[in-house]
Write a protein that binds this DNA or RNA. Structure first.
Lengths: 345, 345
DNA sequence: CTGTTAGCGCATTCAA
DNA sequence: TTGAATGCGCTAACAG
């Protein structure tokens, strides 16, 4: 013991409460955990001591001793917690976790598989009860190792190829197909597609939906009408501008993601083409209604994605051992104007 | 021991690794913690055993034993993690925490002081190293108790009255004052103010900024020109519509918050007044540039708020015992059109 | 270089 | 109804 170095931030322990109340350790434990069989008199003394010392139980020690019991903490690995989409998803996760008395450790992988794998291990080290993951497309190995060791994982939004775990995703393919069909139904034949990097599961699904719809309509798609790999609004904006400034301007556009839509709208406004060229967005955007024209969008529900994934996770934690299940959420097409414009000549 | 009930999710322990590698517990500990003084031969055997068993250290046991050492986890209590503002703040917090090797447990109080207090205690129970709080206006008691017991707390965005802890906030008062002065400088005298609930610190500060600017200009503000308590876009929209439909229509508006701005813009567009009535928003909004007119805004930087608060928190954790400090971030006024419109007659 | 002993704060088991 | 002993998984403090 070093008498001149007051142990910093030393919190009172159960033992000290016991001494202060003149009872045994176990009696305090009983009171703290609302176990029956403590006389009202002792209960009172213990509560007084707890209040006087400002005792707070140590969840770490508790969960260490209670082997097999829950830790009341789940992990959430996102690509970017700062993204509004992720924020709503987080809220869905948190709300379900709360119902189960759990808190959420959230962290961002920034689309970096190594960082994702590191986070995975850190969360396993903390012995979280389970994990909800918005995975990168290279998440498979980490997850497999985790699953082998009994760490439950549910994926959201993206589903890594051939991974034996539950997943909850939007109907990316169907949503874009429906959007494309709307454009086709109003006479559009020359449709431009602006999408995210094809390394990403959702981006591949969406592009596939577009190609399916076009193929069904018997329309061949030119290579230069399909741009992928647009990661931020600036890049999307210049890609859209290039497409719109080219010799044969498309009469309709599909922006297959949030940030791509923002860039595309900017390009349309800059060129004064917002009332000439039809636009449908995957992901709803703020002010979709206030813009002119209002933006027709295929709307995902990130809150619901997070909510369902977490419901699933707790089902697994409660002993569900059924086959991995893929839950596909429908994505409604909201018609507001920009997607219903006819071909202008 | 119950032979027919296989302990579920049982992870290998250090002891088992030691047995498997034929070394002592401590040697495994040394290898796991990269402590010097283990022969390469034993290191190799230990690593092999670790890989074979899929051993992952238990952070709970570790932090329990290492008294005084960091837990590598900080808590973040937000009002609503689903809010985009909060999402960016979270990212700022996470990025700093990461630099210090820490993860973040994030939770939402939903503006409910009781829930906030509960979360506070749950996080203390988990022995987080410290807490960043976006507090409700009733957070003071919880925080005081926490501080007394040595739990470091830094507040962001709002600062509860007379609380002895660090805080990082935007210059709410100055920002609105500057906005008001811009309207005044272009001839506006009849300015409407739409704001959030005055239970909230930032709302009070902003209203004060408005009143200060008006008072300095020697203009008295009618009661019906100042609306507070607007908590969501719908309520804000109808409040704005009422103000704009009244007998004496204001020539300029200040929307003192994100969601209020959204409602106000909707009202202006519905009434076709967006080019008649000037508008300045506190908080920047998506598509501020694409709307017509583009929205002049006083822009907060939520990421920077979170970042600075967390930097401060770790300074405290590293032993800084200076007086509590209030860090006020400037908020630039971005002129885009809607705020520079002259009075229309 | 390696191992043994103790104990972090608590819940579990069993005894009184 | 109460309490003493034991150990969760690990690291600290000491030996060898």
């Amino acid at each position: 013991v070093t008498p001149f170095e007051p142990t910093p931030n030393r919190r009172p322990t159960m033992r000290e409460v016991a001494r202060s109340a003149g009872v045994s350790l176990k009696t305090v434990s009983r009171v703290v955990n609302d176990e029956p069989g403590v006389s009202p008199a002792l209960q009172g003394r213990v509560h007084t001591a707890i209040a006087a010392l400002g005792y707070e139980p140590d969840a770490r020690a508790r969960s260490l001793r209670r082997t097999g019991a829950r830790d009341q903490t789940i992990g959430l690995i996102l690509v970017d917690a700062g993204n509004p989409f992720a924020g709503l998803m987080t809220r869905g996760v948190e709300d379900v976790a709360r119902k189960h008395g759990s808190l959420v450790i959230a962290a961002s992988s920034d689309e970096d598989p190594e960082r994702e794998s590191l986070l995975f291990r850190e969360l396993v080290a903390r012995r979280v009860d389970g994990l909800v993951m918005y995975p990168t497309d290279h998440a498979a190995p980490s997850i497999v190792r985790g699953l082998e060791r009994g760490t439950q994982v549910v994926c959201v939004d993206r589903v890594p190829d051939g991974l034996p775990c539950d997943a909850v995703v939007s109907d990316n393919r169907g949503g874009i197909r429906e959007a494309t069909e709307l454009l086709l139904s109003t006479g559009h034949r020359d449709i431009g597609y602006l999408g995210d990097s094809l390394h990403i599961y959702t981006a591949r699904e969406r592009l596939a939906g577009f190609q399916e719809a076009m193929a069904r309509a018997g329309i061949s798609v030119d290579r230069d009408r399909t741009v992928a790999g647009l990661r931020d609004p600036e890049v999307a904006e210049s890609a859209a501008r290039a497409m719109l400034s080219g010799p044969r301007r498309p009469t309709g556009l599909i922006a297959a993601q949030n940030l791509v839509t923002i860039g595309t709208i900017k390009a349309l406004h800059q060129l004064g083409l917002e009332h000439e060229v039809a636009l449908i967005s995957f992901d709803d955007v703020q002010f979709a209604t206030e813009l002119s024209p209002a933006i027709t969008a295929v709307a995902q529900d990130p809150y619901e994605l997070g909510r369902r994934a977490t419901v699933r996770l707790f089902e697994r934690l409660d002993g569900d051992t059924s086959e991995p299940h893929l839950d596909v959420l429908p994505v409604p097409l909201i018609r507001r104007g920009s997607g219903e414009m006819r071909v202008s000549r």
